[in-house]
Design a protein around this nucleic acid. Sequence first.
RNA 1: GCGCAAUUAGCUCAGUUGGAUAGAGCGUUAGCCUCCGGAGCUAAAGGUCGCAGGUUCGAUUCCUGCAUUGCGCACCA
Length: 552
Amino acid sequence: MRSRTYVEAALRRAVAELGWTWPEKATVEAPKRPEHGDLATNVALVLPQEAGGNPRIRAEALRERLVADYAPNLAAVDVAGPGFLNLTLSPAFWQGTITRVMEDPCFGKSSLGQGKKAQVEYVSANPTGPLHIGHGRGAAVGDSLARILRFAGYEVHTEYYLNDAGRQMRLLGLSVWVRYQQLCGRQLPFPEDGYQGDYIAHIAARIHRERGEELLSWDEATAQDFCYQEGMNEILEGIRQDLRHFRAEHEVWFSEKSLVEAGAVAATLADLQAKGFAYEHEGALWFASTRFGDDKDRVLRKSDGSLTYFASDIAYHAHKIGRGYDLMIDIWGADHHGYVPRMKAAIAALGKDPESLQIILVQLVNLLREGQQVAMSTRAGTFETLADVCAEVGVDAARFLFLSRKSDAHLDFDLEVVKRQSMDNPVYYVQYAHARIRSLQRKAREAGIGLPEKPVPELLALLATPEDLALLKALDGFGDAVELAARTLSPHHVSYYLMELAGLLHRYYTEHPVLAAEEPALRDARLLLLEAVRRVLARGLDLLGVDAPTRM
RNA sequence: GCGCAAUUAGCUCAGUUGGAUAGAGCGUUAGCCUCCGGAGCUAAAGGUCGCAGGUUCGAUUCCUGCAUUGCGCACCA
């Protein structure tokens, strides 16, 4: 059991024994200052007045209980300030962390999401062109979040919502079709709002290569539809490849078109109308989102009879609800934040708690090179696509950078800095810690030194320097870090945790020789400690989708 | 004009949802290579947490107002 859980259980028991009830506002947390002990609680401060006495007197009563009941694991219990209780755990408790890491293959896993189903929908970019760097950030956040939630006990599914119906898609078909005709020698103006990218021309050229001028003899609609299909398939294949390479693979690719063709959109609109949440006005069908806190009502079906994207988005989310998710997470570009209230309104109108939909807004990525902004034109060839950026800086560095900031904060992505292998770029710092341990273990093996069979207490008791205890406490905190990341849907907490653990490891490494330790027993104890650190580093990096290298 | 977010060290950013004397990295300065990987380590300097009020035992954190910046405000996607 990790320290926080252990101490909270002890406190709860003491509170109950004194005839009080545990207040919701009570917290148990690691204080900032080490002289305030390993864990501190405000429970005596937040107990209701009826408990009697003042906070300091209540704290004193709790202290006596704790000292009586938990003597061997508690080294000290102090009442401080207005009534804080500061608890210090004994070295033996911390040393036990190694046993917990070594014997539990899922060390740090939490039961936060036990029995709950969650879905993470991310990227979901329209297949009208290759993924760019901003999509990469969404991909890193979505994929890592899925890993973290899974580790926090949720049953998680990942999904890509494919907008393969509607205007953008027709425009893609048209763009390819016009390029194709130009290749055939027809003088045609390029549509004003068409897609300009080189990849459109490539697709047209491939069709021209494979089919010659055959399409010219087809009727316009068939040819354009063919161009659309070919174009989308090729672009989609590229997107799939980019995501696979980026280690962000979706389990389900959900087609908007399939939703429309199955009549799900019409059914959802009818449902909303039946509930009185949708109404006709000036020839259009409106959703009464103002009834759920939105600024204004929103159009579902335009007066020309066509559906808005919002209509199919609602139907899509109705479909998600139907699949029984307790938690639905959508990852959107921050420029869509104005869309959040209406989507939440839709969830409420569908009869589901709007809190079950969590929308993570991922801010824009500012791509730089040596501090200079890289032009984000739609032209290929500049370093703007996700694939190009990964080719230049590597997947690990890109992912770690994306995951070391809050999602909802602008991010400067300086290609030169991300390539630099220094503390500017902490991915190497963390990976180096892992590689260092591996290297040490290789050396040990070469010298015929193996890891001890079992982490027995007599061995672990040798780990008693401040550096030992700092590492042990950090290992103990892994579960808290993961739980925090899961609860706040913020993978960056895992990154920060790993940087801290790596820092402690590097310090330990320079401070305490392992293979050259004074005694074999001490050497063995340190080997155990480092292996425990290595496992946690590897697990943490895995939650970010970053490699834990054996050598660098 | 309305809405959403951001504002913390010279720079880039954390800050566990209200806790005690504010945290990292970079940069700067001063140190550490007979030693398991120096892609590393130690130490110092650096702060009115944008400003002003409020809520309470206690505020960087919550509320209100203001300022600056970014982004949204379609029968577009």
